[in-house]
Design a protein around this nucleic acid. Sequence first.
DNA 1: GCCATTACTTACTTTTTTGTATGTACCGTA
DNA 2: TACGGTACATACAAAAAAGTAAGTAATGGC
Lengths: 126, 126
Amino acid sequence: MAKIKENSTNNMNRKYITSDCDLTYSVCMVGGRWKLIILCNLEDGKLRFGELKNIICNITERMLTLHLRELESDGIIKRTVYAEVPPRVEYELTAVGKELIPIWKQLSEWGARHRKLNPPVSDHFA
Amino acid sequence: MAKIKENSTNNMNRKYITSDCDLTYSVCMVGGRWKLIILCNLEDGKLRFGELKNIICNITERMLTLHLRELESDGIIKRTVYAEVPPRVEYELTAVGKELIPIWKQLSEWGARHRKLNPPVSDHFA
DNA sequence: GCCATTACTTACTTTTTTGTATGTACCGTA
DNA sequence: TACGGTACATACAAAAAAGTAAGTAATGGC
């Protein structure tokens, strides 16, 4: 999220794995804690920073900023700054981002079905 | 992956977010470093522990074990142990796991397209 | 009795991600 | 001229994920 150690085994493996597998690559793009919730909320149009912050209760400004920046630099969302005071910044899905919508709908349905079939037992999703 | 602190903010947020959003829930299921590569490789049928280890070069036995265990406890793969010595253990997708195949194909295609459109600039996927 | 093989454990370290707390710029309004 | 609102930035701490290194159990073959 912030600084990564360029030649750690960890980072090397990430590179290897995301270059080897388009799927892993895709999921990495979208794999941060709050990224999908952000994207879901942008499905119906633009939102301001503050609106996102209020909708996604629990997220901190720092986390929201970090995730928005990554989504932006990955070309999934677009950021528009209006030269006003106080500042106004709007976020929206790019064309590439919108292509994900049908996919995440299906994934979402899978999740809903799966959640019923396999109610959480293991503690990592208790 | 191992022990989690039951009432850390981090863990509380994970619970909140995965219970609030089926999509985040799904991606979490599948979001570990090596999980998708494992799943991809199981697409065509059963594989033994050692086979996976050899196919996925770079993965350590520990990581392979941990991910397999999570996938199993999440009902995405099935583990079969044969009472032999030396031991033989086979892994395969469950029905629920197989339902993911069409979804990850699409995601994979998105990844491939996206990778061409947005060749990595940011260092987090250099 | 010793070794090889397989599929793991266990204890530990490093790296990355997430969260906390506080500060900043901008300018119109009071 | 102090204040409020917005969208951040920065320094730091905590937690989680990933990686390293060294075991272990079982048993058939030598």
